[in-house]
């Protein structure tokens, strides 16, 4: 079966989606990422969707699931590069992707993940909120 490649950079995993995502391929990515995070003890996952021309509710839900699974496995996820037309459409569709951290591009996404891994930024500080 076709698979989306997952690259490793240090303790981070990088995925660039450059094909038309059909549903089973998206689910395969979810499974593969979960496995790789656990195997490698990855601290962060970066998903570049700049080549995706649409994000429908199924793809949106899969991205949210990946972020949720990664969090349970002690890894942060950041989705980068969403096209403005895709963002407008997603919000109109009724999906604002709560629970998904986004960044405008790969550089900013990597910076966020590196800070998150070293305990910088605001990550993990919400236990002070009470």
């Amino acid at each position: 079966m076709e698979r989306i490649p997952i690259l490793r950079i240090g303790s981070l995993l990088l995925v660039t989606i450059q094909v038309d995502l059909y549903d089973d391929l998206a689910l395969q990515l979810q499974d593969d990422l979960s496995t790789r995070i656990a195997e490698l003890g990855a601290t962060g996952v970066l998903i570049d969707i700049s080549a995706l021309e649409i994000v429908d509710s199924f793809i949106g839900r899969t991205l949210a699931n990946i972020a949720a699974i990664a969090r349970v496995l002690d890894a942060e996820t950041v989705v980068v590069g969403m096209q403005p037309a895709v963002a407008i459409t997603l919000v109109e569709l009724g999906m604002s992707l709560p629970g998904i951290r986004t960044a405008l591009n790969v550089d900013l996404g990597m910076e966020y993940l590196r800070q998150a891994a070293t305990g910088g930024d605001g990550v993990g500080t919400d236990h002070y909120a009470e």
Partner: peptide
């Protein structure tokens, strides 16, 4: 933007 909305609805 119209293309993206219509293709998403179609999906």
């Amino acid at each position: 933007i119209d293309q993206t909305k219509i293709v998403t609805a179609a999906s």
